[in-house]
Computed example of a mutant assay.
Amino acid sequence: MTAVTAETATVAASAQEPLERHRPRVAIGTDGSTWGDAALEWALRHAWLMNAGLRVYSAKTSDDNEIARRLDVYRWLHASVTTSEDTPEHTLLWASADTDLLVLGHHGHRTRQTLGLGHLVLPVVSAAECDTVVVRGEPRAVRGEHGWVTAAVGGQHDEIVVRRATEIATRYRDGLRLIHAWAPHGARSVESDEEPTDVLDRACDLVAQLMPTLTPSLQLVRSHPHEAVETCGRSDLLVLGPGGEPGNLSPITRTALYLAPCPVMVVHP
Rank of each mutant, 00 (worst) to 15 (best):
H78K: 12
V221E: 15
S58W: 04
G147S: 09
I67R: 03
A79S: 15
E89T: 14
H180F: 03
M211E: 15
A181S: 12
H268F: 08
P251V: 01
A228Q: 01
R143G: 02
H185N: 07
L71Q: 09
G105P: 08
R140S: 14
A79I: 11
G116S: 08
V199E: 01
G53F: 01
W148H: 12
G116C: 08
S223D: 15
L40V: 11
W42C: 09
T111A: 12
E191T: 13
R222L: 07
A165F: 02
V149S: 05
I168A: 10
H46A: 14
L238D: 02
A151I: 06
G29E: 04
A127G: 01
L178A: 05
T34L: 12
A128R: 03
A165L: 08
S33E: 08
Q156A: 14
P225T: 06
D72L: 11
H146R: 04
G118S: 05
A95G: 09
E66K: 13
L237G: 01
S189F: 08
R173W: 00
Y258V: 08
H226P: 00
S14P: 04
L49S: 10
P24D: 07
C130G: 01
I67T: 09
S80D: 15
P212C: 04
N65P: 00
Q219E: 15
H268A: 10
G241K: 06
T253L: 02
A165H: 03
D201V: 13
A59E: 14
V264H: 04
P216A: 02
S223G: 12
D64T: 12
I160G: 01
R234L: 10
T170F: 03
A228V: 03
P263C: 04
A59Y: 03
T170D: 12
V4H: 05
R143D: 14
V73K: 11
A228E: 04
T34Q: 13
S84A: 12
A183V: 07
L49P: 00
V207A: 04
R173Q: 14
R55Y: 00
V190M: 11
R163C: 09
V133H: 06
A9W: 10
P225F: 05
A181Y: 04
H78A: 13
G144A: 07
N51V: 06
A169M: 05
Q209R: 15
T166A: 11
S217P: 00
L249G: 08
H185G: 08
H106W: 09
G243C: 09
S126P: 02
S126A: 15
P123L: 08
P88M: 09
H109E: 09
V207E: 01
P246W: 07
G29H: 06
M211V: 13
S217D: 13
D37S: 12
G233E: 11
N65V: 10
R143N: 12
V267F: 02
A141K: 01
A12P: 03
E66C: 01
M211L: 00
T166G: 05
A141P: 11
A208K: 11
S58T: 13
A39Y: 09
E194S: 11
G186K: 04
P24H: 04
P263E: 05
T166I: 03
V26P: 05
P225N: 05
A128Q: 06
V135K: 10
Y57F: 15
S58F: 00
L218D: 00
S96K: 07
W94C: 10
T132N: 04
T114E: 12
I179E: 04
L92C: 10
R164I: 07
M265R: 01
E194Y: 04
